[in-house]
Design a protein around this nucleic acid. Structure first.
Lengths: 118, 118
DNA sequence: ATTCGTTATGTTTTCGAATAAATAACGGAA
DNA sequence: TTCCGTTATTTATTCGAAAACATAACGAAT
């Protein structure tokens, strides 16, 4: 015990409104999968997430933006499906960019720090 | 649904080693309470955390640093107690400083961004 | 040796979140 | 009008983490 260790910093960021979480890592990952498959159910299956959970997340995101991030179609050819709106695609881009910048910032700061002076 | 919203950014940071979590918000809060009370059990009670949980967190932190952050005394006058080492006090300072800088950074970036162009 | 309040540690119980299951609704196509 | 695979929604079940509980160990003081 108590040997000199190497420390790394981790972080999670998320964007919220007064009504709760809006975008986070999981939500953005879901958006990307929906974009890939054109289907909420396929996206959920791919992420090993229940369809119900995915549906709730989509609902939450859509209801917290002036226009829906995910456009859903019920019934019809192939049973329906879902696609991302321009706002949906933009949300992915903005969030990932912010997350990347934040990681860079933290890693830079971490270099300057040492806990363990031995 | 879908009215224009105000977005805020939140974040959590934590420091880890290859053995798992080392410092995070909860752990630092615990360190501060131990410093305040001179007792793990009193700190735990104040935080409405079980003593066992607090003890495990202290153990985890101590074992991931070259010298213990919390110095424990079993038995004796008053039954014993615990105090922070210099390393423990430093850990609080370093972590809180980093968290603050990160918050500032994110809030600045957030000002430049808008999701919702209406 | 007894007392005291703490640290130390194993065991049991509880609780809520996540998952799974079940069912309905939908609408284009054949 | 039947079929299809999706979205939509409610209800039931499972599971694991957290809390609660229970005891032991400790050592200075009296």
């Amino acid at each position: 015990m108590a040997t000199k260790e190497e420390y790394t910093i981790k972080s999670r960021i998320w964007i919220r409104t007064k009504n709760g979480a809006f975008l986070g890592f999981g939500r953005v990952a879901l958006l990307k999968k929906i974009d890939e498959y054109g289907s909420i159910s396929k996206a959920a299956a791919d992420m090993k997430m229940s369809y119900k959970k995915a549906w709730e997340l989509v609902n939450s995101m859509n209801s917290q933006h002036s226009s829906p991030l995910v456009i859903r179609k019920i019934g019809g050819k192939g049973g329906g499906g879902s696609v991302l709106s321009a706002a949906g695609k933009n949300a992915i881009k903005v969030f990932e960019d912010l997350a990347q910048k934040n990681d860079d910032f933290l890693n830079d700061r971490m270099k300057e720090i040492q806990f363990d002076d031995e």
